[in-house]
Design a protein around this nucleic acid. Structure first.
Lengths: 216, 216, 216, 216
DNA sequence: GATGAATGAGCGTTCATTCAT
DNA sequence: GATGAATGAACGCTCATTCAT
């Protein structure tokens, strides 16, 4: 499909042959198609044939590249998580306190999902027969990243012992805000990332002092 | 097969012939079984046979009462929404301002999901092989009710012109908090509804003043 | 396919409904088709669709009656073995010595395979593409019965300590003779069971005294 | 495809360039791998990939040497038969009568299968899920050779008009004994070929005089 | 020739739905 | 209505074979 050669310049080491190249392209094409299809229909509903149809390849080829439907799904998730983890980790280390960590993490997350969305933006086809299962049409990648933010926030909360609040509830709330506001952000035109960050951060940090304090 | 009546309220002795009663009971039994099954396995994975197996009825009967698997799903959602709407409406009318509305709506929502959960508490079987799709194992009913809270909050926000904030983001954030904190609440033993309410309300109303104000 | 009602007379107890009847017929039809197909093509080569094609039923129906391809295969084998075991057992108990047991067992076996063959005689279609895998086109049933004869002969040999011969070789040889001569017998027209019995028994019992004696 | 000679005698050292040699080696390697694989898994279950995996060649190469999976199977059988035929023929010519022919043929056959077995000894993996199809895990070669012994015995029987017995049954019985005793022999440790020969020959020749005589 | 990615028919099996009883 | 056997499209996946390099 897309024909611009990634890294095929003479500077690419190993001088990948044409063969090797199409292999990479196909692998990529399947991954991309899978991202779209899983995003549009969800894991269960998506079929392997749905995925390969978008690539122009054959069923057999799908299985040349991935051992199973589940494997592509995981490859997608792993891919996103792998790319995002270092970013988040850097924020965590740079942050002096919980406040600055929250800002950093939200910023990183919003930027990540924006990029994902711009690259692979998917739209759910109207009337696809499936009851709307309030899934945010998230690709496995976005889901995996989201899970990471989730645990990193919990961790930051553990570290910051200043406010004896219900950390479990707080983490859940932060996460929820990040996910929903982030999702809404993507739907707007133009997409205004800084504004969304301000909103989410203010909501979280503003709410913080008002929270009930734990007894013990 | 078995035709003996369950007679589930003493107040319904009147006209309803034997047949009439049974019909309602069957319809109800299917609905209840569907709620459990969808909660446990998700819409796609659940089969019609999974549902009717719990009712003791036959596949054929399923289709006597509902035209399709999808129809039960929607009936479930409608059912929950229908029961919850008046409660929410009452809160809305009783509330003097946004603050008190939020408290009322959250209270109503948490009580609703608690009741649902106690009645139909479902557990997802461990390790079901499906990549974890971050679904809260919610029944369609809980989802539908959730959607209602969502729109009622938006409406309340519209009404209260005191704070020129981004209503769309705010509604999303409130909703997100309600959903996640509510979900966490249900997982704890003992379930402490008032504490959860305090937390969610504080988070929302505490965050409110800190929110960026809209220019225009 | 065949429409004559087995046992549908008023004398049939339980007055099996028409429904129950067709069920039995279908179950039977699948079993019969499976016997033919396995006989003609072997377990691996035979497909479920090959089997149901001969019954006029649908794929789905196959799985209403049997849980898997393997299950029909086993049902077939079990069926044959179950019917034959008592016959063999009676011969064993009636036999005074190894000689008379051999005669009894061979007789029973030859009669069994004849009956099977007459009822379900199958012909391998010419040029079916599969290299001839020297399988005697045996149905699972015949194979199962054969296995029983095999072990019963070994047992009889154990019991009769008169001739210290290599029981393992002898059992193998008896079995081999029974199988091959029996197989040849079925190919002849007319089928002459007594002659085949005479031959096989003479071969075995005639050879016996000539066998090398064991040292210890 | 390739039409030049196989020339496997030591007298063919000459022309064969490196290429030439490799071609023969590959052809041979495929044949050997196929023998193992068919022996271990049976024709249907074995895949072309199973075969080439053991050669280090590519799927493509497989099809350079053999037109199909079936073709290798046949090549294997032909190969064994071709090598064995002269041996058997020599026995046939050297034998004065049926007795000595039987001894010669059995001896040749047992030695052949032993050698085959030692060279390509294969074990069927335990519990492979396939209903046990009473196949002796024989390679196509062993099967082909077996078929030859079969017909040679029939021929010898025709020649020897001394005993008017049922030649067809007798051939079948001899063959059966040879196959089964031979098979058992291979399973023992240590393998005792002379003992197996004594047993099989005694069984056949001892049984001979006891056989029913033909009327006409 | 050698290579291995591409192909697609076909396999065993499931399941929403229909329909005769 | 209630029943459950019948149906067949569709699924995930395999594998003999082809073909561009």
């Amino acid at each position: 499909m897309s024909e611009f050669e990634l890294l095929d310049s003479p500077t690419a080491p190993l001088a990948a042959g044409k063969r090797e190249l199409t292999k990479q392209q196909n692998r990529r094409a399947i991954l991309d198609a899978a991202r779209e299809v899983f995003g549009e229909m969800g894991y269960e509903t998506a079929t392997v044939r749905d995925i390969i149809r978008r690539t122009g390849l054959s069923v057999g080829s799908f299985y040349n590249y991935y051992r199973s439907k589940e494997e592509v799904y995981e490859a997608l998730a792993d891919d996103g998580a792998r790319r995002f983890r270092p970013i988040l980790q850097a924020q965590y280390e740079a942050a002096a306190d919980f406040q600055s960590y929250i800002r950093g993490a939200i910023t990183a997350y919003f930027n990540f999902i924006l990029e994902e969305h711009e690259t692979w933006g998917v739209v759910r086809p109207p009337g696809d027969g499936v009851p709307h299962v309030h899934t945010h049409s998230q690709t496995p990648e976005m889901k995996a990243v989201f899970e990471q933010v989730k645990s990193s926030i919990s961790a930051a909360l553990e570290r910051d012992r200043s406010a004896p609040v219900d950390a479990d509830y707080l983490a859940a709330a932060c996460i929820a805000i990040a996910e929903e506001v982030g999702h809404k952000m993507l739907e707007r035109r133009p997409v205004d990332v800084p504004a969304a960050i301000e909103f989410a951060v203010a909501m979280i940090l503003g709410g913080l002092p008002a929270l009930p304090r734990l007894k013990a």
